[in-house]
Amino acid sequence: MAKPVVATTSLAGCFGCHMSLLDIDDRILQLIELVEFDKSPIDDIKQFSRQCDIGLIEGGVCNSENAHVLKAFRKHCNILVSVGECAIMGGLPALRNNIPVGECLAEAYLNSPTTKNANPNKILPNDDDIPMILNRVYPCHEVVKIDYFLPGCPPRADLIWNALVALVTGKEMELPYEVVKFD
């Protein structure tokens, strides 16, 4: 039987959730026996090469490209999992949701102490080669249907591991108190 195929991506995340996946340490060697990876930052596959069984999403949706990538994941993955607070509810980046984007840009590029005398022409990043920032940061399930949610910032390595093993083997998942943390 062919191995289950896993894809992963980071949208508006900090890569902490991917790092937590790496924190399964030597179980990494078991993991690559258990599953194959398709499109993911841990390999060189940039575009989906086939339909995948499981898609792991880190990060919420903060710009036009994030939305585009998330929709592609929904299309190519049978099961989609929001990994971590950013994917589940926007996480820390969503603190900007009550603030107009213009104010955030002004603070970073015009008013900051290291730019206020260094940006006489009041330049803001704005170019065809960089993506559009959305008005707010959206949790993934507001953009596409999400099947499972793994809480934590980041979720414990053991939680990610238990969830992957359960999804791959079809066995019920163990959820001991110590591995499920909301932080």
């Binding site: 508006a12 903060c62 900007r96 603030i99 955030c104 603070e107 970073a108 900051s112």
Partner: peptide, 10 residues
């Protein structure tokens, strides 16, 4: 660099 978060403001 195509990322912007707005930490300085929020």
């Amino acid at each position: 660099i195509v990322e912007f978060r707005g930490f300085e403001r929020f």
